[in-house]
């Protein structure tokens, strides 16, 4: 399958938008401007980007505490995302969710949960509804390697496979669940093998190779659109920043600088940029123009978030949200 220059550039732009957004958030957290706990997606951009590139607005994506990348890849508005991270009333969840709970009804992201594995069965339920109404919509569950330790993961995989639902399970294996290396949490750390036990077509791929993610994702999504059942994709990747916040967790002894350097050398964005330039789909000048344009958009999002009001604090307003 040949991927067009246009698609490749689109993948590049989306990855840069996630990267630059996350790095700006890291900076703002360091400065004390942002206080909601932020689990940054830097380093994992190829996963959300590669998968969501084949999705439509009427397909569902369900996310986790590390949610910004999925929101941006699904086409969410940077201003509403930044405003939510500032916990302002103009945020996508009106300042009630913060960084871990973001939503976009218009782009098909019903929500992200801070409870590990929490949204996996919910994504399966959305797929159940999609399969009942006809059409070819699909549902995607993003989750980390830590979620594979939760019971909800197994219950969801079994039911999806049993009912052949149009859902794609995307495991972002970033090698750590919070502070714990994957080998210390899973008896069998080859996660896609676990999924195979549920008779799901499963694979493990380089999650930093956006083209590989894109092609694998597209095949799984097509399979779901044709109502041939669910698929499981384990994407090997790495988070550059710590579990939460802007630090690198090297000083805390969780990982070595050498390990971090090795993964930073496998930067998914740099790799694609190199390929685009080699193929003459992109020049250095165009690349920096893209970056400048995104930086300007992020400046706008930060300005919007800062000048937005906080949610109204009267009790009636809080109760109104409980029971509409």
């Amino acid at each position: 399958m040949d991927v067009s220059a246009e698609t490749l550039i689109k993948l590049y732009v989306t990855m840069q938008r996630i990267r630059l957004f996350e790095e700006r958030v890291a900076d703002l957290v360091s400065k004390g401007e942002i206080t909601t706990p932020c689990h940054l997606y830097t380093g994992q951009e190829a996963v959300a980007t590669g998968i969501c590139a084949s999705l439509r607005n009427d397909d569902y994506v369900f996310s986790t505490h590390r949610s910004h990348g999925h929101y941006i890849a699904k086409g969410g508005d940077l201003r509403k995302l930044m405003a939510e991270i500032y916990c302002k009333s103009t945020g996508c969840s009106k300042g009630r969710g913060g960084s871990m709970h973001i939503t976009s009804a218009e782009k098909g992201l019903p929500g992200s949960s801070a409870i590990v594995a929490g949204t996996i069965p919910i994504a399966v339920g959305a797929a159940l509804r999609l399969s009942a109404v006809g059409g070819d919509g699909v549902s995607v569950a993003f989750f980390g390697d830590g979620a594979v330790c939760e019971g909800a993961f197994y219950e969801a995989l079994n039911f999806a496979s049993l009912k052949k639902l149009p859902v794609i399970f995307v495991c972002e294996n970033n090698l750590f669940s919070t502070h714990m290396p994957v080998e210390d949490s899973l008896a069998n750390p080859i996660i896609y093998k676990i999924a195979e036990a549920f008779k799901l077509p499963s694979c493990r791929i380089d999650g930093n190779d956006v083209l590989k993610v894109y092609k694998t994702g597209q095949a799984a999504i097509e399979r779901a659109r044709k109502r041939k059942g669910p698929s499981f994709i384990e994407c090997m990747t790495y988070r550059w920043r710590g579990h939460v916040g802007p630090n690198y967790d090297v000083d805390k002894g969780i990982r070595t600088q050498k390990e971090l350097d090795r993964w930073m050398a496998k930067d998914p964005i740099k790799a694609l940029e190199k390929m685009l330039i080699a193929k003459r789909f992109l020049t250095n000048g165009e690349a920096s123009k893209i970056v400048t344009g995104i930086e300007r958009e992020i400046d706008g999002a930060v300005a919007f978030a800062k000048k937005s009001p906080y949610p109204p604090s009267d009790e009636m307003e809080i109760i109104r949200y409980l029971f509409r």
Partner: peptide, 15 residues
Amino acid sequence: NGITGVAIGAALAGS
């Protein structure tokens, strides 16, 4: 727990 999640997801998607 899984089936409750399924029922929630279906509800979010229009059930």
